[in-house]
Design a binder for these strands. Structure first.
Lengths: 223, 223
DNA sequence: ATTGCATGACTGAGCGCTCGCTCACCATAA
DNA sequence: TTATGGTGAGCGAGCGCTCAGTCATGCAAT
């Protein structure tokens, strides 16, 4: 198995493009490959959450996925490769869960308010996964890391868009580009904060209380 | 060398107390011990920042500190122990830098505003160190992790105190305990955000711009 | 039907190596 | 001589990864 990670060499013309994923040197049934990779990722996510990337062995991953190390290395080029797959999978799931629940109807302000609620709820559901990203992203090779960060920026952009809409339809007070950008990052990070400050927040607030307080804080500032 | 980490067994009566640090089985010059440990920590911090805890070897640490592995293990019980020392040292330095620059004069609101500026500046100076804490804290044994998190809460408490003062002297609008606590965490995290979202923020904002925007956002909400 | 063979997913012992940690020994100063 | 701080070769556990081999299956020739 050749590595799946984005090849550092050829800069693709369209800027943020998915790296070439498949190397057809060994032809395999694509369906099976996808299935096995999903097994590997599912197993690895749980192990990484429990013990971290570095303390998880390839043997453990293989066993948890339901086959032997040999087979693991039929579908993956290296241990680092699994980490890349895991990070990608987490971001993808995050985005899907958001997209399927986001409502874009109403004023910009209303849509933003709803989006914050949805986002915080998804953060709560996936808090272990978000933590994993925060802790292990830097273990990725540089090039792969850039793709993970790009994903992160896509999520932030959702909020920036809604803020822009709110400004445009006058449901939010006027903001320049910089203020919008910063606010979008603030919202994203405040969602993540619920996961990486759980130890301090969860004893004092329920998710609903936390969401309500933060949302009124954010919107109070913008209207 | 016995481990330096907080012993899990005896819960000290005074709640958040420094764990017993010294085991006098082998008597050594305390001054030398402190000096060597400082060498070890200084070397380790740089290495951990560069390559992370797991990818740094004990041999590298010893060499960077200026002596051999044998000597390293005269002053430290294990590799994990070094990580604990490093985390402690970072928090200590953080607290010192804050304390020596914080001004408590004026209204609560004014003091808070100044504190935010100082805090953000310290975060900027120590961004690599803060990142290190975010990424490696979970590699600590459970008990040691609690002490690191307690440190974190002490810093948050600084902001909570100032917020409380501002409410008391009417320089801030009325807030209940929960709102104060939450706001304190927000401030702390927004400072950290400057370090762990550098990749997105630094290209668009200088530290001064970032501080100014966030500070007016925070204080705007509170007055 | 039976046989022989090619295919490819899968296995796991084991290779080569690195790591954390130890300990028998050394150097120097009192 | 004794005490103390320092050394670094070496131990052995455990790691990521490989590869010679097994087995089930499908197909073609007998």
């Amino acid at each position: 198995m050749k590595p799946l990670q984005p090849s550092p060499a050829p800069a693709p013309e369209t800027e943020t493009q998915e790296p070439a994923r498949d190397i057809p040197t060994e032809v395999k049934d694509a369906g099976l490959v996808a299935k096995r990779r999903r097994q590997i990722v599912d197993a690895a996510v749980q192990l990484f959450i429990q013990k971290g990337f570095h303390k998880t062995t390839t043997r453990e991953m293989a066993k948890a996925a339901g086959f032997s190390i040999g087979t693991l290395y039929e579908y993956v080029a290296s241990k680092e490769d699994v980490l890349y797959l895991v990070c990608q999978a987490i971001h993808l799931e995050m985005e899907q869960r958001l997209k399927e629940r986001l409502k874009f109807a109403g004023t910009g302000a209303a849509a933003l308010s709803a989006a914050i609620e949805v986002f915080f709820e998804v953060c709560d559901q996936m808090s272990d996964h978000i933590l994993l990203i925060y802790q292990e992203t830097k273990s990725l090779p540089k090039e792969s890391m850039r793709f993970v960060l790009a994903h992160e920026e896509r999520i932030t952009a959702i909020f920036a868009d809604l803020l822009g809409r709110g400004v445009a339809d006058y449901s939010l007070k006027p903001l320049d580009r910089a203020q919008i950008e910063l606010m979008a990052h603030n919202i994203a990070v405040l969602g993540h904060m619920w996961t990486f400050r759980r130890w301090a927040l969860a004893p004092r607030f329920t998710l609903e209380q936390y969401t309500e307080l933060q949302r009124s804080l954010i919107l109070g500032e913008l209207t």
